[in-house]
Measured scan of single mutants.
Amino acid sequence: PVYLSVKADNSMFIGNDPVTDETMITALNALTEGKKDTTIFFRADKTVDYETLMKVMDTLHQAGYLKIGLVG
């Protein structure tokens, strides 16, 4: 499974590897070998604001990742 996490300080990680807004999709493409039907499990600290969550989800959708599971 692929886990994308947003921490309380808005830092992002794919698994244990830090990513930025600019590198997130490139890292996901490498990890999933470009398979856009891969489910991305998205988790965020409860203090992360809604705007940040939606920005990340919008970026995922624009890149073609449509299977996003929200996890606690």
Rank of each mutant, 00 (worst) to 15 (best):
M12V: 11
M12P: 01
N16R: 08
E22T: 10
S5K: 08
S11M: 11
D9K: 06
F13E: 04
T20M: 03
T38M: 10
M54H: 09
L60T: 00
V48P: 02
F13A: 04
S11Q: 12
G69R: 15
T39K: 13
M54C: 08
K7Y: 15
A44I: 14
Y50C: 12
D21G: 12
T20Y: 05
A44Q: 03
D49V: 07
G64F: 02
A30W: 07
N10R: 10
L53T: 06
D45E: 11
V71W: 08
T59W: 09
K55P: 02
D45P: 04
V19Q: 03
T47Q: 15
A8F: 08
V6D: 00
L70G: 04
E51K: 12
I14C: 03
V19P: 00
A44D: 02
Q62R: 14
M57S: 04
Y3H: 09
D49L: 13
D9W: 07
D37K: 05
G15T: 02
A44P: 10
L60N: 00
F42G: 00
F42I: 15
I68C: 04
L4A: 02
Y3L: 10
E22F: 07
R43T: 14
S11C: 08
D45G: 04
T52S: 06
L60F: 03
T38K: 05
V2T: 03
V48I: 09
E51G: 11
M24G: 00
R43N: 12
T39F: 13
H61Q: 10
G72W: 04
T23F: 06
S11D: 04
L28F: 02
F41S: 04
G72H: 11
D17W: 12
I25F: 04
E51M: 12
F41A: 04
A27S: 08
V71D: 08
M12C: 04
Y50T: 10
A63Q: 04
N16H: 09
N10M: 14
M57C: 06
Y65Q: 00
Y3E: 06
L53F: 10
M12D: 00
A44W: 12
L28R: 00
I25V: 11
V56I: 14
V56G: 01
M24L: 15
I40D: 00
P1Q: 11
N29R: 04
E51S: 12
L4V: 14
E33L: 12
G34S: 07
N16P: 08
E33T: 08
I40C: 01
N16M: 10
V56S: 02
L53I: 15
G64C: 03
G69I: 15
S11R: 12
T52N: 06
I68W: 04
Y65A: 00
S11N: 08
I14A: 03
K55F: 08
K46D: 13
T47A: 14
Y50I: 12
D45Y: 04
D45N: 04
V6Q: 02
L31S: 05
K67E: 07
D17C: 10
V19A: 02
D9V: 06
V19H: 04
E33G: 15
T52Y: 15
D21C: 10
M57K: 06
D17K: 15
A27P: 00
H61D: 03
G15D: 09
A63C: 02
V19K: 01
V48S: 05
D9C: 05
D45F: 04
Y65M: 01
D37W: 04
I14L: 14
H61G: 06
A27R: 12
M57D: 00
D17H: 13
L4Y: 02
K55R: 13
V2N: 01
D49R: 11
K35G: 04
G69H: 14
H61W: 09
F42D: 00
L28G: 00
L66E: 08
V19W: 01
D21F: 15
E22P: 03
D58F: 08
M24N: 00
I68E: 02
N10V: 03
E22D: 12
Y3K: 03
Y65G: 00
K35C: 06
L66I: 13
L31N: 04
T52K: 13
T39N: 09
T26W: 09
I25P: 02
K36Y: 08
T20Q: 05
G15K: 04
D37R: 03
K55V: 06
T38L: 08
D17N: 11
V71T: 10
H61F: 11
V2L: 08
H61N: 12
D17A: 12
I40F: 02
A63Y: 06
F41H: 11
T26A: 15
D37T: 08
I68T: 06
M24D: 01
T39H: 11
K67I: 10
L66R: 09
P18W: 06
Y50N: 10
K7H: 14
G15H: 04
D21I: 15
T20N: 09
Q62Y: 07
D58P: 01
K7N: 15
K35V: 08
A27Q: 12
F42S: 00
A63T: 02
P18V: 08
L70A: 06
N16A: 12
K7F: 15
L31V: 15
T23V: 04
Y65P: 00
P1H: 13
G15Q: 08
T32I: 05
M12G: 00
L4C: 03
E51A: 13
I14N: 01
G64W: 01
N16T: 09
K46I: 10
D45R: 01
K36A: 06
D17Q: 13
K7V: 08
L31I: 09
L53C: 07
S11V: 12
F13G: 01
H61K: 14
L66K: 09
L53K: 07
T47E: 15
V19F: 03
I25N: 02
G15L: 04
L60M: 03
R43I: 15
Q62D: 12
I40M: 02
V48A: 09
K55L: 10
G64Q: 02
T47K: 10
P18Q: 13
F42P: 00
F41I: 15
A30I: 14
F41V: 13
D21R: 15
M24V: 09
M54K: 14
P1D: 09
T38V: 14
L70W: 12
G34Y: 06
P18H: 08
V19L: 03
M12W: 07
A44V: 12
V48F: 04
L70Y: 10
D21Y: 14
D37C: 06
D37M: 07
V71N: 10
T20C: 04
K7S: 11
V56K: 05
L31E: 03
L4G: 01
F42W: 02
A27G: 04
P18I: 11
D21W: 15
I40P: 01
A27I: 15
D49P: 15
H61T: 10
A44E: 03
Y50W: 12
S5A: 08
M54V: 11
L28K: 01
S5F: 15
V56H: 05
A44F: 10
T39D: 07
K36E: 04
G34M: 06
T26Q: 13
L70Q: 07
K35R: 15
L28E: 00
T52L: 13
F13W: 15
Q62S: 12
T59S: 11
D37F: 05
V19C: 05
T32F: 05
D45K: 02
L66Y: 13
M54Y: 08
G15W: 04
A63P: 01
I40Y: 01
E33S: 14
K67Y: 11
K67S: 12
V2P: 04
I14Y: 03
Y65L: 01
R43W: 14
D9I: 04
A44N: 04
I14W: 05
H61L: 09
E22W: 05
T32W: 03
D37H: 07
K36H: 08
A8W: 12
T59E: 06
V2H: 02
P1S: 09
A8R: 06
F42E: 00
D21L: 14
N16S: 12
D45W: 05
I68Y: 05
G69D: 15
D45T: 03
G72P: 12
Q62C: 06
T32V: 06
G64D: 02
D21S: 11
D21E: 15
E51W: 10
N10P: 01
E33H: 13
F41D: 03
A30D: 12
E22M: 11
F13Y: 13
M54N: 09
G15R: 03
V2G: 01
K7G: 11
V19N: 01
T59Y: 08
V56A: 05
T47F: 10
V6E: 00
N10Q: 09
T32R: 02
I25H: 02
V71K: 06
A44R: 03
L66S: 09
T39I: 11
M12F: 07
P1N: 09
P18D: 03
T39V: 12
L66Q: 11
N16I: 08
T59N: 11
M12L: 10
T32S: 04
S5Q: 13
G69Q: 15
K55H: 11
L31F: 08
V71R: 04
P1L: 10
M54D: 06
T23Q: 09
N16W: 07
F41M: 12
N29A: 07
I14S: 01
R43Y: 15
M24T: 02
V6G: 01
F13H: 06
E51N: 11
I14V: 13
L28V: 04
D17G: 05
V56T: 05
L70C: 10
L4T: 01
L28C: 02
G64Y: 02
K55Q: 09
M54A: 11
D58Y: 11
T26K: 11
K46M: 06
L66G: 07
V48K: 02
I25Q: 02
D58S: 12
M57W: 09
I40L: 03
K55C: 05
L4S: 00
T39P: 14
T23C: 06
K35D: 14
A44H: 09
R43K: 11
T23H: 07
L53W: 10
G72C: 10
D49G: 14
N29I: 10
P1I: 14
D9L: 05
P18E: 11
A30N: 11
M12Y: 13
M57A: 05
K67N: 13
F41R: 05
G64P: 00
H61Y: 12
A63D: 04
M24F: 10
Y3R: 04
A30T: 10
V6I: 15
D49C: 09
P18K: 12
N10W: 06
N29Q: 07
G34R: 04
I25C: 03
T32L: 09
K55W: 13
